[in-house]
Simulated assay, not measured.
Amino acid sequence: MVKPTLLVLAAGMGSRYGSLKQMDGVGPNNEAIIDYSVYDAIRAGFGKVVFVIRHSFEKEFRELFSADRFGGRIAVDIVFQELDYLPDGLAVPEGRVKPWGTNHAVMMAADAIHEPFAVINADDFYGAEAYKTIGEYLMQLGDSTNRYCMVAYDLNKTLSENGTVSRGVCGVDGEGNLSSMVERTQIERMPDGKIVFHDGGADEELAEDTPVSMNLFGFTPDYFEHSRNYFKTWYEANSGNIKSEFYIPTMVNKLIGDGTSSLRVLRSAAQWHGVTYKEDKPALMAAIERMIADGKYPRDLWK
């Protein structure tokens, strides 16, 4: 049975948060969220972790997240996402400074990953149950193609008390596969307890257990070729907008919409934690202390 790989998207600079939050210590021994993600992936049977970063902070990142840090328990590789890393024949439009988005980041790992893999955000704390769930699914895929998966969370377990959030609201068909994924912005819990989103029109209420994507996806290596091919089409349509981004849901919706692929929605009852805003950090640190007290993690993660 082939062990899956964990692909960690860590190239973002955390503009809203105000610092390079991928490396920010949140555990009792200054562990970053990435440490807990890798720890959970090892326990779930993953065999390798690949980080997508930028050259601008390569030195600092390598000093922290080398194979030595993880005690040799998992293979480590690093790839880079840069603005000019584009398919042949494409160029960076004049004035473009914004990165190309999450699916462009995934594309950077094409030469490093040759087995089923999970994709995560570096700054999201997904919980051990999520890695176990997606790891088990990926291990069953073998040489399958076009059979993907994602872990969906209940919306009420992904909110921030410090501001609005954006979430991919998922539609699920009778067979448990994704039928649609729509990005909803400015989601928050109102004073009356209802969860609503303000997408520019009238406020619309969302159910507490609405399944949402937190960018925890599982793919097989054929996804890289699909992405490379479709990026050219997307580029032609969007290169005039220097702030447009090639997101994972953009690619997923295309493949599902044209019948190329199916994507199984794996539900998680776990509480998601993140640091969308700097004010979220104390709550995350307190949650980690509770999980340590409950025996879910050792106090010194890599001792």
Rank of each mutant, 00 (worst) to 15 (best):
R228Q: 08
V265T: 04
Y235P: 00
Y247H: 09
G95Q: 13
T233Q: 02
I292T: 00
D258K: 05
G27L: 04
F219P: 01
E245S: 12
N241S: 05
K278G: 09
Y36T: 07
P249F: 00
G218H: 03
I53H: 02
G27S: 04
G200P: 00
V151I: 06
I242T: 13
V8M: 09
G71M: 13
K48N: 13
R184P: 04
Y85G: 08
L7C: 02
D77R: 11
T164V: 15
F246I: 07
E136Q: 08
A118F: 04
Y247I: 12
Y277P: 12
R62G: 10
G27M: 07
G142K: 00
R69E: 00
Y277D: 11
M1D: 13
V79P: 02
A130H: 06
I113E: 03
H226W: 04
A286W: 07
F46H: 05
I195V: 10
T250L: 03
V38N: 08
G95E: 13
S262R: 11
V79L: 09
Y85M: 15
L90Y: 04
A287K: 04
E161S: 08
L138N: 09
M251I: 03
P298W: 00
N30L: 11
K132L: 15
A207E: 09
F224D: 01
P282V: 01
I74F: 03
R267V: 10
S180A: 08
M1F: 12
E175N: 10
R184E: 01
T210A: 04
N215A: 14
K303M: 07
L216G: 03
M214I: 09
L64H: 13
W272N: 13
D68E: 13
E236L: 12
E245R: 14
F219T: 01
E60H: 15
F61I: 06
E245Q: 14
D154T: 09
K281H: 08
M214R: 05
F224T: 01
I292G: 00
G45S: 03
F197S: 02
S180T: 04
I248E: 02
P211N: 04
K98V: 13
L255T: 05
G176M: 11
L284C: 12
R73E: 12
Q140A: 05
E161K: 14
L7P: 10
S227F: 06
K296N: 14
E289V: 14
L266D: 03
I195Q: 02
I42D: 00
P28W: 04
R69D: 00
R167A: 06
C149P: 08
L141A: 08
W100M: 07
V265A: 03
S160Q: 06
V8E: 09
A10H: 02
N215W: 13
E82N: 06
K194Q: 11
S179N: 12
